[in-house]
Amino acid sequence: MIPTDAQLVGRAQAGDVEALCELVERHRVVALRVGYTIVGDEAEDVVQEAFVKAYASLDRFRDGAPFRPWLLRIVANELRNLHRAAGRRAARERSAWQRTEPLLALPPDEDPAAAALSGERRVELVRGLAALSEVHRQVVTCRYLLDLDEAETAAVLGWPVGTVKSRLHRALGRLSAALAEAGPGGAGGVGGVGGVGGADGAEVGRGA
């Protein structure tokens, strides 16, 4: 039986270091992803600090609540603590994107033919993301690049869930429009395979 997060939290609260390790291992990747894309170059420190704080406040963890959003909220709080001054925070978030952007634009190591995205499509998407406002880019990043659900996205960005929904919708609209504009060849011009806006759904993604 694989223990649930809640069981691990219970054991970690009782001082079981193995349970704590298991919790960290389960969630460190998502925490780091959030760190890299939202925090920027101090991601590792922030994530570390967040886990330490999470451990220290495990007694305040509400029984039965999902652990991941709770943890991600701590990660996000750490980020905010780090950049209390709004100007600094904005600069930091820009720099996080500046670090993320080249990674996204870089084709994966694997056989390009096997990649889920054509090179051009990838570049266009990244350009489109770059052109979005910070909040729109963040919500898209959290939801799809980091694969967070709405509650987790809300926790990371510190917004109400309703705001996540509405901003996400608007962000996708903007992005979609920007992509259509960027591909002057018309519907077939963007992805090679898929169409703009995705009405035909021909392009196969791996986003299951």
Binding site: V29, L32, R33, Y36, T37, T100, L103, L104, L106, P108, A116, L117, R121, R122, L125, V126, V140, Y144, L145, L146, D147, L168, H169, L172, L175, S176, L179, G191, G194, G195, G197, G198, A199, D200, G201, A202, E203, V204, G205, R206, G207
Partner: peptide
């Protein structure tokens, strides 16, 4: 997924491995 953005969303998800730590 929000209506009409299926392909866009699946393409965005396909970018995700790039931000894997």
């Amino acid at each position: 997924e929000p209506d009409g953005f299926d392909v866009l969303v699946s393409d965005l998800r396909a970018l995700a491995p790039a931000v894997e730590p």
